[in-house]
Amino acid sequence: MNKAPTIFSFFSGAGFLDLGFEKSGFNVAFVNEYHLPFMETYQYSRNHMGMSQPEYGYHLGDITEFERNPKSELLSKLINQTKSEDRLVGFIGGPPCPDFSVGGKNKGHEGENGKLSATYIDLICKQSPDFFLFENVKGLWRTKKHRAFYELMKDKLHSHDYVTTERLINSIEYGAPQLRERIILIGFKKSLLNKLGIELEAGQTLTDVFPWEDHLKYHIEEINAMPWPGMEPFAENGKRERPAGISEELTVDFWFEKNDVGNHPNAHQHFTPQAGLARFLTIPEGDDLKKSYKRLHRWRPSPTVAYGNNEVHLHPYKARRLSVAEALALQSLPKEFQLPQNITLSNAFKTVGNGVPYEASKGIAVTILDFLKVGEYGEANRS
């Protein structure tokens, strides 16, 4: 196989996951997102990065619309057209996850967002792409009451001839400066596995042969063993030497410097408190375990980039909250990636927090390419 697999993206947000797939060698041809500010950011960022429009366009609307005609027929037509050109078709998407998050609504599959996970799985079964990726919070996989729903979704996929593999990833293992766990479920049609010459022996599962660890930059055990600094008194604009023995590329300050956040187009965009500045001055650098008012440490990774539920993330050595530019850097995005200037601060931080870290997106994408024996990763796999 030497043609770039074609991606149909759902719950695309501002396109962090899509960008990782595009930059790794996939053709992201179809983009679906419901929230207009996310879609506008997707289009704006791609335009400013000089990237072409998706082959099959942007589709603003609820994913449930693709369960009904005429949008169901349109989707089927595009998929059939792609397959007729001997191109593999893949679905990727991370349905909204607060209903499965311990820190969110926790309503599970009965919540409005929880139902969208089932809709996405139904769409996969109906439209029958060659492979798919499903991304969600670890609560869906780890919490007992949600795990039963997760297993039912897998059962449905298996009944439609998909073979699946899953892993609880941490984005930092792929080189993102952020501790962010997510469950990744990937599935391939049995017919595709046969074409690839992949046969599972008795007792084997797809996880036994899928190269999950081949494109990790670190293992969490070695990261945890590094001598990361603890809490230190806040010093506005103060200097601190980088400790020996840590990986600099996994730190907040490395990415701030790498992305030149002070001169980034979104540098000036941050919330300014009407009150409470004194509190900003008292929280130590590295005090990031509280529910709210977390101050990052410049020489550590960031906690999960999430800015809802009253989570306030403070700059390591400035008496303010993080800027949009700094949040984008912590999502490991290229410095050229930017958000529209007219986006509201609430939508900006929601956009950033909802995305999959770019380095993790790339790592997962090249792992799939490796498995599919496509492009440079496939060539390496065949040699």
Rank of each mutant, 00 (worst) to 15 (best):
G175P: 05
G25M: 11
F131P: 06
L193M: 14
H297L: 04
A235R: 15
G286Q: 11
S332I: 08
Y56P: 03
A202G: 01
A325L: 09
E326I: 10
L133E: 03
G57A: 12
S128V: 08
I121F: 11
K189M: 05
Y174L: 03
D155V: 03
G57E: 12
P37W: 12
V312F: 13
T272N: 06
L157T: 10
Y44V: 04
F132Y: 13
F8V: 13
R180I: 08
D260Q: 15
L289C: 02
R240M: 10
R300G: 00
N113G: 00
N106F: 14
R279F: 04
S52N: 14
L157S: 06
D214E: 15
F371E: 09
N354I: 08
T205W: 05
I343C: 02
A29P: 06
M39F: 07
W299I: 01
S84C: 02
E221G: 00
F16I: 05
H158W: 09
G13N: 10
D260V: 02
N263C: 03
E199M: 09
P265R: 10
E249C: 01
Y307V: 15
Q341L: 12
T165Y: 08
H215R: 15
N259D: 12
G276W: 10
W228T: 02
P96K: 05
F210M: 08
Y358E: 02
Q127H: 15
Y42D: 05
R68A: 01
L372E: 12
V209N: 11
L74P: 00
E40Y: 03
S323W: 12
Q53C: 03
R87Q: 15
G187N: 14
P316N: 09
K195Q: 15
D86K: 15
P340N: 09
P211A: 05
K294P: 01
L74H: 01
F100W: 04
G139A: 05
E110T: 13
T143V: 13
L322I: 14
I121G: 04
G238W: 11
G94F: 13
P284V: 09
V89Q: 06
T82Y: 00
T119H: 14
